[in-house]
Design a protein around this nucleic acid. Structure first.
Lengths: 179, 179
DNA sequence: TAGACTATGTATAACCA
DNA sequence: TTGGTTATACATAGTCT
């Protein structure tokens, strides 16, 4: 018998689907592993089984890669980004579209996060006359988040320009320690 | 010549490594795409290029898969809105890509603007060790500025926007529904 | 940097244990 | 679910454009 060609659409037979999932999942993880090793890059893969069980691969760790992905504001800064797509296949374009949607989502998530921080800080400031322990705690938290984010932002900026890196020796981020 | 067997260790030659990364990345995304389609499951892949550029694949979306994964096993019954795009024409997909690119640009511009505003406050919190009356005064002032800015921001949101950024206020991106 | 090309290594569909 | 086996489809290293 050997391998037969199959259409890329949902496998109807449930048993076959489960077997296929198991084998392809490990194949996918193996590919991801090879990619990280061969090219010395970070990557993460998360897959849910048909039953809902999560499986994951991550180098160095899923959380680290995901955090970096969510906080990297540079999803789209490829130079010739607005050139015409001359994709050879619909599948290729489909992948491209999905990738773009994900990037839109990431950028929006980042923007929402920034807006939340701004709102949090603004809310605390609305009653300055009662700046008591509670408020100070909230402010402290908001500022810690803010600091974390701005530190990341500065790091991004420093990494982005090769010349200015030496000037702003940011150093390791220190907690605010307001209280 | 054709393909040669290679050891799974970091590719020393930089050019070869970059080429290999590009090819294997798309291969990995394709595998992930096939897995989700064939088995009807959710999956996400995030990869950073050797230069640090993030690439991603997600079904239904990276954020959703990651959120679900991070809430460790908790079932969020997510109807699979964006499983796969069934485009009818390359032209159609090209249009969709351009649209998405515009959204990405808009979202990023928005994010940059927010980050600039945050930087305005960042200067105040750079010396946290002596957070005394003086610093609190300065902080209060900075927060007042911040409030002014966020108020403007909220006004903008309420009024809608003349730029293409308005697309991003629509919340979760709409399903492609190309087929 | 991104497509082609081709020979060949690898992944995997079908089947069985 | 996982682990073989076989035959074949698919991915990709090396090279050139």
């Amino acid at each position: 018998m050997g391998r037969q060609k199959i259409e890329i659409k949902k496998i109807e037979n449930e048993d076959a689907r489960l077997v296929s999932f198991s084998k392809r999942r490990s194949g996918l993880f193996n590919k991801a592993s090879c990619l990280t090793t061969l090219c010395g890059v970070d990557a993460a893969v998360v897959v849910f089984s048909p039953a809902g069980t999560p499986y994951s691969f991550g180098s160095p760790r899923v959380e680290m890669v995901v955090d970096r992905f969510l906080s990297s504001g540079r999803e789209m800064e490829e130079p010739n980004f607005f050139r015409q797509h001359h994709a050879t296949s619909v599948q290729e374009l489909n992948r491209r579209c999905m990738e773009l949607e994900n990037q839109v989502e990431a950028a929006q998530a980042r923007r929402r996060a920034l807006e939340e921080r701004l709102s949090a800080v603004a809310a605390v400031r609305d009653e300055p006359e009662e700046m008591e322990v509670e408020e100070l705690e909230a402010l402290k938290e908001a500022l810690n988040q803010l600091k974390k984010m701005t530190d990341e932002h500065m790091k991004e900026r420093a990494a982005g320009s090769s010349s200015s890196a030496a000037q702003n020796e940011a150093g390791p981020s220190t907690p605010l320690d307001l209280g």
